[in-house]
Design a protein around this nucleic acid. Structure first.
Lengths: 146, 146
DNA sequence: ATATGTTACGTAATAATATAACACAAATAA
DNA sequence: TTATTTGTGTTATATTATTACGTAACATAT
């Protein structure tokens, strides 16, 4: 029961799943499956499938999310409450980082739309593309204005 | 000026762009780039790039949307008001069809989140995965219940 | 008309992402 | 133990997308 208080330690993960999750947690930006593979070659991973299988499991557990518009994967920012149903990301096209967010109002509106239309929703992904605050500041430096 | 009243005729499209758009409009479900290519071989298209270039242009015009989670493309259901900023789709995992929707409340909440977080949003995609009404009915047939 | 810039085209090659199929090992449960 | 499930490792292949190159079509300004 001393077992570590890490939010992600509740479930027993296999070696490969642990390697992938730890790498994603340590990364400050989403990673593609193949860059995960490259990083883990030293740990013994050799084939894409090893990564994809671990990712599938981790996504099922709500510990990892997939960014559909980028074919990339990111550790869930809220590892405590694995909300699998609705997740949102704001993805910066300049630095590649993704900010995870959750919004109950949006979730309710969308599930309202679904039931009004007889659609049985299993999962919802929201992805906003644009430029993050930090990258906007940087680009103002070059524009010389004010 | 007699020029056709088709909603999609406002802009002058090239032959390849027209072929791709017409095919997507005629399809009742989203299509992958390569299935578009296959369908248009008889029309003279030969290489993936020809399709991807046409798609890029059509997406820029708001006449076609990309379903990020499926690597597929679909003609815009509202060809009149080309809303590029925010589009939503409910995608049926059984029949593969996609229902397009728009919701101003959601759009406002999301753009509110963005400005509150200093994020400069360019485009937003919402994709709900699940089962459409029609496919639910069909599967009830087999479940015999009630 | 001719020059110039822009947009689109066609082709070949290749990169990047993802899955199928197979045989085997470890953990779990009956 | 036996059966069942779950995960593993490997090879091969399928699917999706882009790079790089050279050419053609079109607008428009001289």
């Amino acid at each position: 029961m001393k077992e570590v208080a890490m939010a992600t330690a509740e479930v027993k993960l296999t070696k490969n799943q642990r390697l992938v999750l730890d790498l994603l947690c340590a990364s400050d930006a989403p990673m593609s499956a193949y860059s995960i593979l490259d990083q883990l070659r030293t740990e013994g991973l050799r084939a894409p499938l090893q990564v994809y299988r671990a990712l599938d499991k981790l996504i099922g557990l709500g510990l990892v999310h997939r960014l559909e518009s980028m074919n990339a994967f990111v550790a869930c920012a809220h590892p405590a409450c694995h909300a699998v149903e609705m997740v949102g990301f704001a993805i910066c096209e300049t630095c590649g980082k993704a900010l995870e967010f959750a919004d109950n109002d949006v979730a309710e509106i969308l599930s309202g739309w679904a039931s009004a239309n007889g659609f049985d929703a299993k999962s919802t992904s929201i992805e906003i593309k644009g430029t993050c605050a930090s990258c906007q500041e940087k680009s103002e430096d070059s524009s010389g204005a004010e």
